[in-house]
């Protein structure tokens, strides 16, 4: 069992969890992920590693409730345990001195940007971090990212804080203004990562995105996570999760992520509406 040492909702439906998982913390590198099974009956769900502490043997994840298994997770509290955590999985991100690296993060990807920012900065890069959210109250990790980056820019879709628009709009403006960006790394929803690729392609800036198809085992066994990159079928779990945004077949990824939407809706509909103020009662009903 893997104990949750600290868990809090740091923005609406953005749950930060520190989990005791020494074998994962020992080897974790930026860009990798874990697969988590909340209990013995839960699904295996992948989560990007945001941070870790090798000495304490802990990892930090950001979890959003989007379906049955993530709902089970967010109902857990500090002191509860998770049945299975396996990782670090996936090929680590290439960390080198590229020059100026722009990191774009959205939703859960804001959290995932933290370890990359630190590593890129430590490797001698100028780190420009641009994070986006629908509105001001959905931003998180500002202080941590500020400390890890040379420049932190926030955007909101509704314009309530920072620059109005998407994170990639900022990157585009900078490129149009002639600023040199040597590499872009975008982590977020499929739409946001696709936009990132579209924006940087005309400028020929290498852009990596962390693809997030549905996964089952995460070790190459099932093939559920196959994506088409450069007209070749790749497995996101063992060949990825990072791929060249300019080569990804975005339409296919978009559809494949929805492969189980009917079943997922079915699952959520068959459980009672959860009263988040009484998690113990909600957990009892889910058990």
């Amino acid at each position: 069992m893997f104990e949750i040492l600290d868990k809090r909702e740091i923005a609406p439906n953005i749950h930060k969890a520190v989990i005791h998982a020494p074998a994962v913390a020992k080897k974790a590198r930026p860009g990798q992920f874990v697969i988590l099974m909340v209990d013995e009956r839960a699904e295996r769900v992948p989560f990007t590693l945001c941070d870790w502490d090798r000495d304490a043997g802990t990892i930090t994840l950001v979890v959003q409730e989007v379906g049955q298994s993530t709902r089970k997770f967010v109902l857990l509290n500090t002191g509860d345990s998770i049945a299975h955590v396996v990782g670090p999985l996936g090929v680590p991100l290439e960390i080198e001195r590229f020059g100026t690296v722009a990191l774009a993060g959205g939703c859960y990807g804001i959290g995932a940007t933290l370890c990359t920012a630190r590593a890129m900065k430590a490797a001698g890069n100028r780190v420009l971090t641009v994070i986006e959210a629908d509105s001001h109250y959905l931003h998180y990790f500002r202080d941590e990212l500020q400390a890890a980056s040379d420049e932190l820019i926030q955007t909101t879709i509704d314009g309530s804080e920072g620059i109005k628009g998407h994170s990639v709009d900022v990157i585009k403006q900078k490129l149009e203004a002639g600023e040199t960006i040597d590499r872009v790394i975008a982590v977020g929803c499929v739409f946001m990562m696709m936009l990132a690729g579209n924006v940087t392609k005309p400028f020929g800036v290498k852009t990596l995105v962390a693809l997030n198809p549905i996964m089952l085992d995460g070790t190459g066994m099932c093939g559920a996570c196959r994506v088409t990159v450069g007209n070749e079928t790749k497995f996101a779990c063992v060949d990825g999760p990072f791929f060249d945004a300019h080569e990804v077949d975005w339409d296919e990824l978009w559809d494949r992520r929805a492969a189980y939407s009917d079943e997922e809706i079915h699952a959520v509909a068959r459980t009672e509406i959860i009263d988040h103020h009484r998690p113990a009662a909600a957990r009892a009903r889910l058990a």
Binding site: M221, C222, D255, R256, A258, A259
Partner: peptide, 13 residues
């Protein structure tokens, strides 16, 4: 890679 094509590994797992 259409939705509805599975490896036997995924299906059986």
């Amino acid at each position: 890679n259409l939705i509805g094509v599975y490896s036997a590994n995924e299906y059986l797992t």
